[in-house]
C-alpha cells in the first residue's frame, strides 16, 4: 500500500482562504477530504474547529459535517431531479427548520449568489457557472464555518471561473467563511490568501 499523505502537519486559521496546489496524485484532494470529514486517515490527529473528528462515529461525523462543512465540487454534484431552490434547501432538511424559515434562508442564499430569478430551474436548464453558484448557495445555506472546494473552477470557462472565484472571495471576506480550495489553476490560487503546495503527499511549503 502506498501512503498518499505522510507526516502532514499544518494549521489553518479561522477565516483563512487557503489554496492547496500540486500535481495530480500529490494528495491534495485526499487532504481536503480528510479536513472535510468524508475520509479518514490511518493514523494521526485531525482537529477541526476544536473537534477531533477522528474520534467521531459515522453518524456523529455526518452530523458534524452537516453543521460545519459546506461542499463545493468540481462537477457541482447537484441533484438533477431537484430545482435550484430544492437543491439549496436539501441541507436544511436535516436541521428541523420549518418550511417558511427554510424558504427565507434559500431565497436569501440564492439572491446572494445572484440566482434569485433561477430558483425554479433544474440543473440541466442552467449553465455550468450557474450550477456552481447553486452549489455555493447549497454550501453556505446552513452557515457552516468551513467551505471546502475541490477544483471549483475546473469545469468552467474563464469568465464563469472568475465569477465563482469572486463569489468565494465574498464568502470569505463578507461572511468570514474559512475556505480551503484545491486547484490546479494558478490564476484561481491567486485569489486565496495563502497557498500550500503538496508534492508526493508531502507539504513542500
Amino acid at each position: 500500500m502506498v501512503p498518499v499523505l505522510e507526516d502532514i502537519s499544518f494549521d489553518i486559521a479561522t477565516g483563512d482562504f487557503v489554496a492547496l496546489m500540486g500535481p495530480s496524485g500529490s494528495g491534495k484532494s485526499t487532504l481536503l477530504n480528510l479536513i472535510a470529514g468524508i475520509d479518514r486517515p490511518d493514523s494521526g490527529e485531525l482537529r477541526v474547529g476544536g473537534t477531533d473528528i477522528m474520534t467521531l462515529g459515522e453518524a456523529e461525523l455526518a452530523d458534524w459535517r452537516s453543521r460545519n462543512v459546506g461542499f463545493i465540487f468540481q462537477f457541482y454534484n447537484l441533484m438533477p431531479v431537484l430545482t435550484a431552490f430544492e437543491n439549496v434547501e436539501l441541507p436544511l432538511l436535516l436541521t428541523g427548520l420549518p418550511a417558511r424559515a427554510r424558504r427565507e434562508h434559500v431565497d436569501m442564499a440564492l439572491a446572494m449568489v445572484g440566482l434569485a430569478d433561477r430558483m425554479e430551474h433544474y440543473p440541466s436548464e442552467l449553465s455550468g457557472g450557474q450550477q456552481q453558484r447553486v452549489a455555493i448557495a447549497r454550501a453556505i445555506i446552513t452557515d457552516p464555518a468551513i467551505l471546502v472546494a475541490d477544483e471549483p473552477t475546473g469545469d468552467l470557462d474563464r469568465a464563469s471561473a472568475e465569477d465563482i472565484l469572486a463569489l468565494m472571495d465574498r464568502m470569505n471576506t463578507e461572511l468570514g467563511k474559512t475556505i480551503i480550495m484545491v486547484t490546479h489553476d494558478p490564476y484561481a490560487a491567486k485569489r486565496a490568501r495563502s497557498v500550500r503546495h503538496l508534492e508526493k503527499g508531502v507539504l513542500t511549503d
Partner: peptide, 11 residues
C-alpha cells in the same frame, strides 16, 4: 448522488 447526499449529512 448518494455520496453527495452522504457528504451533506444524510444517513
Amino acid at each position: 448522488e448518494y455520496a453527495t447526499l452522504k457528504a451533506l449529512g444524510f444517513g
